[in-house]
Simulated scan of single mutants.
Amino acid sequence: MNRSALRSLLVQAFAAAAFLLFLPPAGAEQPPTRPAHIKKLVREAEAAFDRLDIAGARAIWARIYALEHTNVAMCQLGQLDRRLARWVDAVDELERCVAKMEPPETPREQRLYETRHEDLAEARQQVAEVAVLAPPGAIAVLVGGRRVGDTGRIYVAPGQHEVSAALPDGQVVSTTVSAPAGESRTALLAPPTATPPTATPPTATPPVPAAAPPPPRAPQPPAGQGDPARWIVPAGGAASLALLATGLALHVAAASERAEVGTVVYALDQSTWRWRTRENVASAAMMDQISTATLVAGTTLAGATLIYAVLRDGTQIRARVTGAEVMFVW
């Protein structure tokens, strides 16, 4: 073999050895190739973290995660929220971070894997977990205004929270749950009970209401102290008698006038008969009308005086109309 051929073989063997030396092991995760604008944001986030601007670094990593949903960005968000004491968000982000981490293969990966799990365990001690048992078919389940995912579990700040669920028929069931830090509680949302149809009772005759007791009598003033009621009955009786007497007198006078008309009819002086007849007839009619009015007024006044005299001391009158009792009390 000449020298040139031997040199060519040595060069090829050296190239093959170099390729195998720098070839990454099988199964090793290759670092993702990031676009230039993502690399710029990462450098800005690292610079903000070096300045101890934790809130600024967290905001930049949130922008990075919105542009590329990588597990690295999620883990960074969990770490920064833990430093900001945003425990509820930190637990949620670190849980997703740990769930997507590959099993460690190198000592460095092992240290990172253990650190993430320790951070998650620390964050869980600062929050409470609520497991919701909602009715079947619930559209939305909320705990403290935050929506519960498909797992039925959610992390919340320690304390009391309202748990509610919207059902397909539009009804809402709710309850309250109190969970301390580092512990888990279960909230049961019972479905609404169906209201049974109300049976229509048979029609029955309404009972006759019992008569109300008579009202107490008003206190009567002592005699001789100006009680006007004791003068009403005598005055009413005297006035009614006067009206009745006047009516009877006018009635007798009218009858006398009519009798005089009958007498004048047979007189010899015809002209005098005609004049006196018209005058007597008109006078008799007038007295009849006045007599009738006076008799009616006297009778009415006498009846009113009698009713007042009978009922003014609390006498009751009862009357039944179609089975109902009506009571009048003076």
Rank of each mutant, 00 (worst) to 15 (best):
V132D: 01
T305H: 02
P216G: 11
R318H: 13
P135A: 04
E129V: 13
E279V: 11
Q126V: 09
A138Q: 03
A211H: 09
P207E: 14
A297I: 03
T294G: 12
P221I: 08
T70S: 13
L41Y: 02
S271M: 06
Q160L: 08
A57W: 01
T322K: 11
V177H: 01
P202M: 06
Q125G: 15
I60R: 00
D227I: 04
L84I: 04
A249P: 00
Y113C: 04
F19S: 12
L268W: 13
P215L: 15
R83M: 11
A210H: 05
R34K: 11
A73T: 05
A187R: 00
D227P: 01
P168Y: 08
G78R: 00
W87H: 05
M101P: 03
D92R: 00
M327H: 07
W275C: 09
H37Y: 12
S4M: 11
A187F: 03
Q270H: 12
P191Y: 03
I54Y: 09
L306Y: 05
D50M: 07
M327K: 14
F22E: 01
G323H: 01
P31S: 09
A211F: 10
I317T: 13
L6Y: 09
H161I: 07
E122W: 00
A302H: 02
L133Q: 15
L94I: 02
G224P: 04
P216C: 04
G314R: 01
W330N: 15
P25F: 13
T277F: 09
V130K: 00
S8G: 09
L77A: 01
A199E: 15
V252I: 12
V143Y: 07
L188I: 13
S240M: 04
A26H: 08
A218I: 07
